[in-house]
Amino acid sequence: MIELKDIRKSYGSFEVLKGITASVEKGEVVCIIGPSGSGKSTILRCINGLESYNSGEILVEGQRVDRDAPSIVSIRTQVSMVFQRFNLFPHRTVLENVIEGPVFVKKEPRKEAIERARMLLAQVGLAEKADAHPPQLSGGQQQRVAIARALAMQPKAILFDEPTSALDPELVGEVLGVMRKLADDGMTMVVVTHEMGFAKEVADRVLFIDGGVIVEQGPAKDVLNDPKHARTQDFLRRVLHPL
């Protein structure tokens, strides 16, 4: 359902993505791993048009992603995004954050949107926080609200941009737990992450990116347990055994 064909992107003279070709099938969980600055997040941001790309083509359900075309709105309502720093709207309550997209972008009746929002908040374990404001919540709670906000759009896929990197270590688990439940329910997910444990257990496929190219990809267990490429081996060694 998501297809990338030879994507290239530069910031000035620096080429971040040097020809990325990949695809994500419906119901698949794909983890993107790699050193920082390798272009992982840029790939996600290109998929829902937060960044433009210089050449190549990205298709979502056959529809070309072009951030300057009106069609980008429909693509963004189909592919939600969860950010590293949550990016909840601090001036609105948790419930208002979740219904914002359905009510104001998709023009759903408010009552229906609220009903679904409460259900989603219950699903991420935060039913009782509906009337709180985001700054009153812990990082892990905020990220779970952000996931509920993404789900409220009833997307066909969700992009996760390092969803646990800004969290205190003891809060990582609650967010990964929610994500695993989503994966089990068959949600299509693309996850940029440094959580190798999550990738190993939940991902169907892993892409290892370095220097703007896909160095290695394949089923999660193969890439993570038995990497073929020297750069993958080196990266995994450093991530898994930092000392």
């Binding site: 963004r76 950010f83 709207f89 972008v105 998709k106 759009m153």
Partner: peptide
Amino acid sequence: DKGQIEAAQSIGMGWWM
């Protein structure tokens, strides 16, 4: 914060909204 604008865009809001 730029992240606020990105979050708004990511749920399909246009510039004016």
